Simulated scan of single mutants.
Amino acid sequence: MEKYKVPTVLSIAGFDGSGGAGIQADTKTISALGGYAMNVLTALPVQNTQGVRNIYDIPTQAVKDQLKAIFEDIYPDAIKIGMVHSVELVHCIHTELIHYDGPVVYDPVMVSTSGHQLIQEDTIAACAALLFPRATIITPNLDELGVLVNKNIQTVSEMEVAAAQLIGNGSQAVLAKGGHLASSQLTSLLLQKNKAVQAYQSLRIDTRNTHGSGCTLSSAIATFLAMGDALDAAVPKALDYVYQALLSSKDLRIGEGSGPLNHFHNPKKLHIYELEQ
């Protein structure tokens, strides 16, 4: 008779053959933090460290079948959602998660590192209407935050106003990431309903190896939530994990462009705990 279980985290996201972002980054992050990673593939981007070249669709029925197969066998303790690039997929994921009662971390992958919008306006609207309210927290970067509020965001105060607007529009919590701020000190803001704004600051690391940092952060938050942390604890722990992963990869040469983080800079054993009797 089994006596133990592990924290299970499901990544619903796109593919990255170069290994630095998407479900590859999610799986590495969850594993490095001691969780058990599962995947549902939503899209097949053709990309490397130099950028996204193309995005091939995964049939909506295939995504639905993947989700059903996972939920019928291994119930996730937390879910991370990444690339959702069609209205049909938004509706599919929303429908399949209606009865899910665990935490959901949604990284709204909408703008590429080079500044190109990856999904259409109608899909953005569907995400905002259906997935944002369902998520425990959303984690937009500066560019994505600007797309969501239709403004150019350049300062910390503008980040706070934009994130508050998303809360007002139905999001439960927003982590506005400041990695694209034009300053040596980076600030990320956590806004939650009826709570004071929490600011997290760090020094900018001089590195080009930032590929997949958003995927990594959202997966780290989901993993800590799966282990039982509250959002107030999960977010700073995830931010520190990403900072250390960036710091330990800053001098590595992997690829000709923006290389990946060092997800395994301080790997943890699989977190095992007793089943409730």
Score class of each variant (00 low, 15 high):
95 T>W: 01
95 T>M: 03
95 T>A: 14
96 E>Q: 14
100 Y>D: 04
101 D>W: 00
102 G>M: 06
103 P>A: 15
103 P>G: 07
104 V>S: 04
106 Y>P: 04
108 P>D: 11
109 V>N: 07
112 S>W: 13
113 T>V: 06
114 S>P: 02
115 G>H: 12
116 H>T: 10
116 H>R: 14
117 Q>I: 14
117 Q>W: 10
118 L>R: 11
119 I>V: 15
121 E>V: 07
122 D>S: 14
122 D>P: 05
123 T>N: 05
124 I>W: 08
127 C>A: 11
128 A>V: 09
128 A>E: 12
130 L>M: 09
131 L>S: 05
131 L>A: 12
133 P>N: 08
135 A>N: 08
139 T>K: 05
140 P>Q: 07
143 D>K: 11
143 D>A: 15
145 L>C: 02
146 G>W: 11
146 G>P: 02
147 V>A: 10
148 L>V: 05
151 K>D: 01
151 K>M: 03
154 Q>A: 12
154 Q>L: 09
159 M>D: 00
161 V>Q: 09
162 A>F: 08
164 A>H: 13
164 A>E: 14
164 A>I: 06
165 Q>M: 07
165 Q>H: 11
165 Q>L: 05
166 L>N: 02
166 L>F: 08
167 I>T: 00
167 I>L: 15
168 G>R: 08
168 G>Y: 10
168 G>D: 12
168 G>W: 07
169 N>D: 14
170 G>V: 10
172 Q>L: 12
174 V>W: 06
175 L>S: 00
175 L>E: 00
178 G>A: 05
179 G>E: 05
179 G>Q: 02
179 G>P: 00
182 A>H: 13
185 Q>C: 11
186 L>T: 03
189 L>V: 08
190 L>C: 00
192 Q>S: 09
194 N>P: 01
194 N>H: 15
196 A>R: 09
197 V>H: 06
198 Q>L: 13
198 Q>K: 13
198 Q>F: 01
199 A>P: 00
200 Y>A: 07
200 Y>M: 07
203 L>I: 02
203 L>E: 11
204 R>F: 08
204 R>D: 08
206 D>E: 15
206 D>I: 13
207 T>I: 11
207 T>V: 12
208 R>Y: 02
210 T>S: 11
216 T>I: 10
216 T>M: 12
217 L>G: 04
220 A>T: 10
226 A>L: 08
226 A>M: 13
227 M>F: 06
228 G>V: 04
230 A>T: 12
231 L>Q: 00
233 A>I: 08
234 A>C: 06
